[in-house]
Design a protein around this nucleic acid. Structure first.
Lengths: 233, 233
DNA sequence: GACTTTAATAAGTAGGCACATATTAATATT
DNA sequence: AATATTAATATGTGCCTACTTATTAAAGTC
């Protein structure tokens, strides 16, 4: 017990971030070399390196080999969202979860889904429509396509008992996912099942997953009116 | 040059991730100790540690001191979004950016904004409405409140010349941000300025920032119809 | 002067070591 | 037997050292 409290990499990170906030290092500025910062703060270069890695991941600074570290000129706001299984999501709000299969049928991929999957030729897919409920009220309407080539097992699953959402997450790992958000007017089915009037604005979470090159599933999750997605932190 | 190619921590991370994908380590399973994995793969514990930290941050595993490392039971999809300055966003799509101030006025915070700021007493705010355009077409309608207590300088800025968005990002660092997405029906102003018909579904990005405890600004950015937010990666 | 080669630079990475910290299990004390 | 102390364990962290890699600048060559 000699060095009292030494600097942890999070301390260093916070110190550098404070300096950037205070414009000691202004946007566009080049920061001192890791080694010099280490010397100044009295820690090892490794520690500064670890701190810088984090700042770089957050999007506050940019690092280039040999070029040094720069404060980003156009700071971006980086927001991270967790998208859990719908059942989990409902239960964590303290609501009762229910699930209802609406329809399922073997079809060929429509053009829109081919585009999402990134395939040129139509493929056989299981087209599943389902409704998730929270406290007996519609929560999310799910319109899903499951590629039977990559996921033949899905045909043996009783989708009345278990949502495709859940089965897939538990049994079908993916290596890549595309997530996008957009707004949609309720119409036809989505309006009916979410028991809202046609035209009301709904948030859509669209997800497509692949394992290697092979598409697994693509889903449009249409949330009930009033739904908000909140970033972590 | 003896060890040929040694394992980098990203290699280790990918190897562990692959095993989790292949259910070698299934959800809920306890992974071997870092040291054992290191021994098995032929690298140092530090390297495994670095890999595990990343997997833990991604949300694939959970680590507890002494308790060991476990694969998360309910894998979440974690999506990250970059929200740049609007001008940047437009320019990066290869479009011409324009900006138009609609109105600005000193007001007291309405209740909704007090809630967003997390304050009990109304405060004087600059209420700014503006429109961002891409290739002369409406791109985003911005409805913003700026706290004059924390940011008095804003009153000296010529908002015809420079969007509040841009000025704030460049001159006003923040320490905390709340980001949320939701859908809204176009109505009144938003419909007019985004030149769409009332009722059409629009995606709203709502952001509120603080420096320490002090609120800086809260903005509702209403995107033109068709706007999609896409996750990184 | 245009090209190539070489050196210097700064970040990236791996490994080994020592110690910190949180948690559980085992042991000793009352 | 109930409680307190101690030991063992696994992750967390910091530091040092050595080497790698990408990039720029300088020196040398034609």
């Amino acid at each position: 017990m000699k060095g009292q409290t030494r600097l942890s990499w999070t301390d260093v990170r916070d110190e550098i971030r404070t300096r950037i906030l205070h414009r000691t290092y202004a946007p566009g500025d080049k920061l001192p070399r890791d080694e010099d910062i280490a010397a100044e703060l009295g820690c090892a270069r490794t520690t500064v390196h670890r701190a810088m890695q984090d700042l770089s991941q957050i999007g506050l600074v940019e690092r280039i080999r040999k070029g040094g570290t720069h404060v980003r000129t156009d700071p971006v706001t980086r927001a991270t969202f967790d998208i859990p299984i719908t059942r989990r999501e409902v239960e964590q709000r303290g609501s009762k979860y229910d699930y209802q299969l609406i329809s399922h049928a073997l079809e060929d991929t429509p053009l829109s889904v081919m585009a999402r999957f990134g395939i040129q030729q139509p493929a056989r897919v299981l087209h599943v429509k389902a409704l998730h409920l929270a406290d007996n009220r519609p929560y999310m309407f799910e319109d899903r396509w499951i590629h039977t080539g990559s996921t033949p097992d899905i045909l043996d699953v009783d989708l009345n008992m278990q949502s495709a959402n859940e089965w897939l997450v538990r049994h079908k790992p993916y290596s890549r996912v595309d997530v996008r958000f957009y707004a949609m007017n309720a119409e036809g089915e989505s309006a009916v099942y979410l028991s809202t009037s046609p035209g009301s604005a709904l948030l859509v979470i669209e997800r497509t997953t692949w394992i290697g090159q092979d598409p697994i599933t693509s889903v449009q999750a249409v949330a009930a009116p009033g739904y908000q997605l909140t970033a972590l932190n």
